[in-house]
Amino acid sequence: MNAPFAINLLGWKKLKKTGKLVPNNADSGSDTSKLLAKHTLEALGVAPDVVLPDAPANLGRALEHAVCDHLKTALPAAAPERVWHVDHKVPVADFAQYEHLDRVAKAMRENTTLRVDLGRDYLIKPDVTVGIMRPTAETGTRPHLHAAVSCKWTIRSDRVQNVRHEFLQMIRYRRGRLPHLMVVTAEPMPSRLASIARGTGEADAIYHVAFDALKTAVAEVGNAKQRDDLSEIIEQGHRLPHGVLLPALSSR
């Protein structure tokens, strides 16, 4: 399934150096990336070689807000019996499993040695947080962090490390049940998606905003490696369509 907002984000961009048009989720230095992204756009029905006049300048930030806005509406509709808290860039210390980090922050402000020894790795603000207020919770109790979503428009090696580091810190610092750790991306190359999926379990799943369109593109023009990579991570259950994100969150 393709995300309902995919058509508003995916399109063409003009390269500053050459003036040529390329898909806005493609690596302009990779022919494979550009080919897969081009056919993904075709499968989505995006007009060829037309730059959207209202295309967002910062696609990474636009993806974060699109995911956040979508879940704010869709989760209460799918599971109205729950009290949902969907937010953008909220510190994990605002949630029950991590509220002790507020005390850590206070101690570090008052102690220079602690600041040097511990650094600032505990100051985690996921791109999108999904919280749930427990039915028996008292007034003023912090919501339980149900899921943390990292939104990456494309995947590069540095971004893979950033995702893993953030998720590992959340695993390390939580007290209580671990939230679902998810990645949402528009990356067109399965080999780069696999760089996250083949990790050591930091991310529960990777969701693609144009999953069906990407599958079509890989089947039509992907090389053997790209087809094998996509098949492998789908079979392992790591690589899922964006449409699965909603039931995966609302049913757990």
Rank of each mutant, 00 (worst) to 15 (best):
H65R: 14
V50I: 11
A210N: 02
H242Y: 15
G119R: 10
R82Q: 04
S250C: 04
A78E: 07
V116L: 14
R198Y: 11
G29C: 07
L249I: 15
D102C: 09
M108G: 00
N111Y: 11
G45W: 11
G29R: 09
A107W: 03
R198F: 10
R109T: 09
A79D: 12
A37C: 05
A55D: 02
E232W: 12
L101A: 01
A79S: 14
M133R: 14
I171G: 05
V163F: 05
L168S: 11
I171V: 13
V83R: 08
S28L: 05
A47Q: 14
M133D: 01
S30Q: 08
V51T: 11
R115L: 13
L246E: 05
V163Y: 01
F5H: 08
T73R: 13
E81D: 10
L101N: 00
H100G: 02
M133I: 14
I233E: 01
Q161T: 15
A43H: 01
K152T: 04
P76A: 12
H39C: 00
R159C: 04
Y173S: 03
K16R: 15
R103Y: 09
H39E: 09
V244P: 00
E138A: 15
S251F: 04
V51S: 03
K152Y: 07
A210M: 08
V83Y: 02
K89L: 09
L35V: 04
S33K: 02
R159G: 02
L181F: 11
A194S: 14
A148C: 14
F5E: 08
Q161S: 15
A217P: 03
H88A: 11
D127K: 06
H242D: 08
K13V: 13
A186Q: 00
A55Q: 13
L63R: 03
T185F: 05
G199A: 10
A147Y: 03
A93M: 09
